[in-house]
């Protein structure tokens, strides 16, 4: 009983905390200074159509590096907690139709994922979305084929080398441009606005993020769903 009263009090306090925020909330009609700078900089300096991509990869690039690190730590935690025990492999084959169909779809889903993260600077989407799509392709294989064995060394290789390359591309910025240019995309030619090979290193960095996210999440799915 007393616990219920405390829970009600806590929720009431939360509502009282939010009410003034809702009542006095004034919606802006125009972008703030920082956002306008980002939109203009994305058009004039970076040649990138998708402003969200340029914010994630360039203006907030260091945050994204930290975020990928958090993802890596969480994956390491999951892998540590769910270590594989030596169990007898249950061999229950799925039907021929399911196996063939899922292998056909697997290639198409991977292709869509690669399309999404290479076109991250032109259309909605990017490394995170493309990486998640690649993970869903592997999820399809896990669900459809019960006797699936991943090549874990390739997964490990992609995961570690994409992380290393991300930092190396950032360091190239310092080497080629200047002290304050970690993760600057201008190390490659900026190209024409709206073309695939434009926006400097942004497609390269976002592809690396896509591979990194895809391999991390595939490891999580494999650890949690594997027999």
């Amino acid at each position: 009983m007393i616990k219920r009263i405390f829970i009600l009090l806590a929720l009431l306090g939360l509502v009282l905390m939010f009410l003034p925020f809702l009542k006095d909330f004034d919606f802006h009609q125009e972008l703030g200074d920082l956002s306008s700078q980002y939109v203009e900089g994305s058009i004039n300096d970076l040649n990138s159509q998708n402003v969200v991509t340029s914010v994630i990869v360039t203006y907030r690039g260091l945050d994204t590096l930290g975020e990928v690190t958090v993802l890596f730590l969480a994956t390491a935690g999951v892998g540590f907690l769910l270590r594989k025990k030596k169990t007898s492999l249950r061999s229950r084959r799925s039907s021929e139709l399911l196996q063939t169909g899922s292998q056909f779809l697997f290639v198409l889903i991977i292709l869509t994922g690669v399309y999404i993260f290479t076109h991250g600077h032109l259309t909605p989407g990017g490394g995170f979305q493309g990486g998640v799509l690649i993970t869903t392709a592997f999820l399809l294989l896990i669900l459809a084929d019960i006797n699936l064995k991943f090549n874990h060394s390739i997964l490990l290789f992609v995961e570690s080398f994409s992380g290393v390359f991300y930092v190396i591309i950032g360091l190239f910025g310092i080497l080629l441009i200047g002290m304050n240019s970690f993760l600057d995309p201008a190390i490659l030619p900026l190209g024409n606005f709206g073309k695939l090979l434009s926006a400097g290193a942004i497609p390269l960095i976002y592809s690396i993020i896509g591979l990194k996210v895809g391999s991390e999440l595939t490891t999580i799915i494999d650890k949690m769903g594997g027999e």
Binding site: F128, I221, G225
Partner: peptide, 24 residues
Amino acid sequence: PDVAMTEAAIGSGLTTIIFIFTLK
């Protein structure tokens, strides 16, 4: 639209699957 794509793939796809794997 970027957030919508991420949420559709992660929030409703992978999170649900991870919960179901745990249950299994």
